[in-house]
Simulated assay, not measured.
Amino acid sequence: MPEPYRAVLKAHPESIGQARSCIAAAFAQWELDDYIARLVVSELATNAITHACGDSIVVRVERNGDGSVTVEAWDNEPGSAPLLRSPNLEASSGRGLRLIENLVREWGWRPLPNKAGKVVYAVLEASE
């Protein structure tokens, strides 16, 4: 399997475009369609930036043995699980994880070691 792509980005909204570029580079190398992955990483990176306690986030993408791809965003907010909110048409946010849930095979989160934050991930089927 190829090495994962990883980018450390500033916890700033301008970094969302850089997160998409990281995904695009990986998917181009793997000769896969990146449309869904760019949308997913936009949502994951936005959430990571929103919840980051420090000045950076990490975006990581990895090709799995079964051909699927895992997209991750890491932030340093310890112990806070992502919440699937009930749809609220009047809210200006809160729909990203519902969108992701409908686009990917699975998604979830795990804490980073030593309470250093969390990783939110999504597993996508590969599209050539």
Results as ranks from 00 to 15, higher is better:
Pro2His: 15
Pro4Val: 07
Tyr5Pro: 02
Arg6Met: 14
Arg6Ser: 08
Ala7Pro: 03
Glu14Asn: 07
Glu14Tyr: 13
Ile16Phe: 12
Ile16His: 09
Arg20Lys: 14
Arg20Ala: 12
Arg20Ile: 03
Cys22Met: 08
Ile23Leu: 10
Ala24Lys: 01
Ala25Asn: 04
Phe27Cys: 07
Ala28Pro: 06
Gln29Arg: 11
Glu31Trp: 12
Leu32Tyr: 02
Asp34His: 07
Ile36Trp: 01
Ala37Cys: 07
Arg38Met: 04
Arg38Phe: 08
Leu39Tyr: 13
Val40Thr: 03
Val40Asp: 00
Val41Met: 04
Ser42Lys: 06
Ser42Gly: 13
Glu43Ser: 07
Leu44Thr: 09
Leu44Phe: 08
Ala45Val: 02
Ala45His: 07
Asn47Arg: 12
Ile49Gln: 02
Thr50Gly: 02
His51Ala: 10
His51Ile: 10
Ala52Cys: 08
Ala52Leu: 01
Asp55Thr: 06
Ile57Asp: 04
Val59Phe: 03
Gly65Asn: 14
Asp66Ala: 08
Ser68Phe: 11
Val69Phe: 07
Ala73Phe: 05
Trp74Gly: 00
Asp75Pro: 08
Asn76Arg: 10
Glu77Lys: 06
Glu77Ala: 06
Pro78Ser: 08
Ser80Asn: 14
Pro82Phe: 00
Pro82Glu: 08
Pro82Asp: 06
Leu83Arg: 11
Leu84Ala: 05
Arg85Glu: 15
Ser86Glu: 01
Ser86Gly: 09
Pro87Ser: 14
Pro87Arg: 09
Asn88Cys: 11
Asn88Met: 06
Glu90Asn: 15
Gly96Ala: 10
Gly96Thr: 02
Gly96Leu: 11
Arg98Thr: 08
Arg98Trp: 03
Leu99Met: 13
Asn102Ala: 03
Leu103Val: 15
Val104Asn: 00
Arg105Tyr: 06
Arg105Thr: 13
Trp107Phe: 09
Gly108Asn: 14
Gly108Gln: 15
Gly108Tyr: 15
Gly108Lys: 02
Trp109His: 04
Trp109Gln: 14
Pro111Cys: 02
Pro111Phe: 15
Pro113Asp: 01
Ala116Cys: 14
Ala116Arg: 15
Gly117Asp: 08
Lys118Ala: 04
Lys118Asn: 06
Val119Ile: 14
Tyr121His: 08
Ala126Thr: 01
Ser127Asp: 09
Glu128Asn: 14
Glu128Asp: 03
